[in-house]
Write a protein that binds this DNA or RNA. Sequence first.
RNA 1: GUGGAUGUAGCUCAGCAGGUUAGAGCGCUGGAUUGUGGUUCCAGAGGUCGCCGGUUCGAGUCCGGUCUUCCACCCCA
Length: 459
Amino acid sequence: MASAKPSIPKGTRDFSPIEMAQRNFIFDTIKSVFKIYGYQPIETPAMENLSTLLGKYGEEGDKLLFKILNSGDFTKGVQPTDVTSDGANALSLKICEKGLRYDLTVPFARFVVQYQNDITFPFKRYQIQPVWRADRPQKGRYREFYQCDVDVVGSNSLLNEVELVLIIDEVFSKLGVNHTIKINNRKILSGMVEVVGETERLIDITVAIDKIDKIGIDAVNKELANKGVSLQAIEKLQPIIQLKGTNAEKLSILSNFLSSSEIGLEGIEEMKTIFDSVGRLEGLDTTVELDLSLARGLNYYTGAIFEVEANDMEMGSICGGGRYDDLTGIFGLKNVSGVGISFGADRIYDVMLHLNLFPESLLASSQVMFTNFGPKEAAFCLPLIQKLRAKGISTELYPDAAKMKKQFDYANKKKIAYVVIVGETEIQSGEISVKNMLTGNQENIDTENIAEYFLSSHN
RNA sequence: GUGGAUGUAGCUCAGCAGGUUAGAGCGCUGGAUUGUGGUUCCAGAGGUCGCCGGUUCGAGUCCGGUCUUCCACCCCA
């Protein structure tokens, strides 16, 4: 009987040892930055109750949730008419009460409310775990992917927003990824639609503004009209659609435009504060740019919105987030504001791979390999190997007494920097041969000094 | 969810209006070199031509379906 071809579900991936080394390099870098800014880790389960998840991500988001079929007799209580009358979506709610998490922010909000009495506010946490979305897979878009979230909850201070900009800058400069941070503010967007009297069409207007560079001013105006935006409002919006210049110039135009909107002006003030603070810091690699087209579909954002794009490759956003004033309110804890961002590890991986940004050294499994000439020589090597390992030098012994060519070939492919040769002559003399695989040089080292040799040659 | 492409050896790709044993480069295995890799030379292994069905005397090549991957829209990490 022919066995089925092994495969994994669409949009998921396996990771080889080399890919893991590269992915861990990203995770470790991000984690180290999070820690140094005083954030602490938490984890939450892969699945949440659907009631926790539904309604937090907008209509589109709800559709993209993976739902988990109830255990046991899940058809209990389902009538034949349920199958035909209300459609699959309504039926799924009758037979599923759990779902895979869609992001890390909503489970975090649930966590904060659930453990509010044990948490010291402001609560700074980071969380690095996979999330799942029933999206159609594409380049940079997977059904299972890792997010690396940092959030502060229980503080209204804009210093938190500034800190997030610093974290973004530090992470990407450590990873060597050239990037641009785009910032916007929901309050500015609210003010904008308020001023033109189209409060119902926030999304239509931001989507249209976003297309200005691609399709031009006339097409944008036409699209706005098609969406039902009044001609008067479109007329008023012109300076906004064609907004250009430095951040300061944009803000000054905007504050004129929003002069009659209290909430809009509040947004302007927030942006000014953030830009001022960031501008005063030196040595930032980051370009921070005010971008009005940034709206973000997640409907819980209320203040600043962030998105980061790689400069040297088309990849959509590799990091995003914002402030949410009342996410915990949905779960019963009022007046707790939070702000956070999420690094998309998988997209960052794709960018780094494409741009060749991973350090070569990640590919090496060990720093040193001992060749194997047979049982007697191997026995002689083992104590030496242990000595190196104790000093923190990753070392391996080739397990079989294979031909030298084969053993060297192995070391070469595994990118091992040094090969140690111990045969009859070396045991006799007490000096072992060490070959540098990069230069091809070979020298004899006294077994007493071997650890020191590698320690010094590596630093 | 809508629209459009793609799928041939481990990888990147050839394949003549449908016609006998399906090719290349790289990689892999072995040898030249019984204590030395990354260069060179020689030899060899490896393919249900994504899967299912149809048209045909005959299908990698045409048709339908299906799955995969990718692109655009949408949304986003």
